[in-house]
Simulated assay, not measured.
Amino acid sequence: MTNSSTRLDHVVLWVADPVASAAFYEEAVGFEALRVAEFAEGKVTFPSVRVNEETILDLAPHSAADRMNMLPGSAGSAGHPVNHVCLALPADAFDALRARLHEHGVPMSDIGRHSSGARGDATRNFYFRDPDGNVFEARHYDD
Rank of each mutant, 00 (worst) to 15 (best):
D121S: 15
V12G: 13
R50Q: 15
G79V: 03
F39H: 12
S5D: 14
F136V: 09
Y127I: 01
D132Q: 06
I56V: 13
T2N: 13
R100A: 10
A93V: 05
R113H: 15
D142Q: 08
D121A: 12
N69W: 06
G79L: 08
G112I: 02
A122H: 12
D143A: 12
S48R: 03
E54V: 06
L97R: 04
R7K: 11
F24E: 01
A33C: 13
S63G: 08
A33L: 09
G105A: 08
A23N: 09
V106L: 14
P107H: 02
A93P: 00
A20T: 08
A60N: 02
M108A: 14
I56Y: 01
V11L: 09
T55M: 00
V15W: 00
V15A: 02
S116E: 15
Y141V: 05
D92E: 11
N52W: 04
Y141I: 08
M108G: 06
Y141A: 09
E32V: 08
A96H: 10
A20H: 05
G133P: 01
E27C: 06
T55L: 00
R67N: 10
S115G: 14
A78R: 02
D9A: 07
D110A: 15
A138K: 01
E32F: 11
D95K: 07
A122R: 04
M68W: 11
A96P: 00
F126R: 04
L101R: 05
V29Q: 11
L34Y: 07
R7Q: 13
H80A: 05
N3K: 08
D66C: 03
A91M: 04
F31H: 10
F39Y: 14
N134T: 10
P107Q: 02
V15Q: 01
E103G: 02
E38N: 12
Y141P: 01
R35P: 00
P131Q: 14
R100V: 05
R7C: 05
A138W: 01
S77A: 07
H114K: 15
A60H: 00
G133C: 09
R98H: 12
T2C: 04
T6I: 07
K43P: 03
D143S: 12
R124L: 13
N69S: 06
E27N: 14
V11T: 12
S109R: 07
V51L: 13
F94N: 00
V11Y: 07
L71T: 10
L13E: 06
A138R: 00
L97E: 07
E26F: 06
P90T: 05
R119T: 06
A33H: 05
H62I: 05
S5W: 08
I111N: 10
G76P: 00
N125S: 15
H80P: 01
S77Q: 05
F39R: 03
D110V: 09
R100Y: 07
V36F: 10
R113E: 15
V15M: 00
A78P: 00
D110E: 15
H10Q: 09
I111M: 12
H102T: 13
I56A: 00
